[in-house]
Design a protein around this nucleic acid. Structure first.
Lengths: 154, 154
DNA sequence: CAAAAGTTGTTCCAAACGGAACAATCTGTC
DNA sequence: GACAGATTGTTCCGTTTGGAACAACTTTTG
């Protein structure tokens, strides 16, 4: 049996673009998180938590859940692990007894910077075949799509 | 606590584009497969198997694994389920005792068409904010990236 | 042609995942 | 101000996941 062209299958399906985005995500980006897990002992949800807190000084778990669109229990688990290993601080919200305010620790930020550099490297590999103009186009389009998707029902 | 703009976090990270692709995939596309599971009793890996066989008349499990970049044991599981429910046929390869040749049944193809229409609808919702020119750009860029990624080590 | 190396498909297992139910707390309404 | 309804964070639990080992078979090498 001759091996079919491993990419031509993408060309004829109707939902080509979303399939390709899934493909790139699952086949190329997700494995990078697996490598990160081995090297830093941090899984994807945990890194995303640190990432959110590296960009917003204070967040509740619920806000992280909304930002990342991940289920709340996943965030909850990640918070506990990151507290245990000292990458996160948590303080009760004086204005709302239900929620707690999360902040990243200096150690957490250092780890975040290392992992984010790793991810930036990987992205560079992925985008390598694109011209500068194409990169601009892609960036602009994905920005538009993300804003739109954030408002879309799951 | 004021809710931060749920999309602005994307703008400042270094690996913006790959994060956004992951976000679109996991926050918008994956939930569609969850809906498909409820409506058709088929999980993502199983649909991808049918999709491959809807585009290539005969494939081995290993070829499906390479096309989709999913682990072989996931494909193996999917093959068994699809055989059980009659969406797939399997015949031993006369030329190679290790592998089996898979083909989609008419029922499998009918199911595939229904699911693929659903996914096409969902993609349309996702791409709604884009102009025709942007869609062309995105399509071209993702095509380029997928071909490139298929050659990239995981 | 025998032994080593590689490939295919499968099973096993530990980890990750997410929906659902839950207790604690807050908000709105009468 | 009490009570219904919403929200937050957590625990529970069944399902999904993918790495690793494995048996069957094929290919390569000396």
């Amino acid at each position: 049996m001759q091996e079919p062209d491993p990419t031509s299958i993408f060309d004829t399906i109707e939902f080509r673009d979303s399939y390709r985005m899934s493909y790139l995500t699952n086949a190329v980006i997700v494995p990078t998180y697996e490598q990160i897990r081995k090297d830093f002992g941090i899984i994807r949800a945990e890194y995303h938590l640190l990432m959110c807190l590296a960009h917003y000084p204070i967040l509740s778990a619920q806000e992280v859940s909304r930002l990342t669109r991940r289920p709340r229990n996943s965030i909850s688990r990640a918070v506990h692990r990151m507290l245990d290993v000292g990458y996160l601080d948590r303080a009760p919200d004086p204005n709302d007894g239900r929620q707690a305010l999360l902040t990243i620790t200096p150690a957490g930020r250092r780890l975040h910077d290392k992992i984010s550099a790793r991810l930036a490297d990987r992205q560079e590999q992925i985008l390598a075949p694109l011209t500068a103009a194409e990169r601009q186009q892609l960036d602009r389009i994905l920005q538009k799509l993300s804003v739109h998707a954030a408002a879309l029902p799951s």
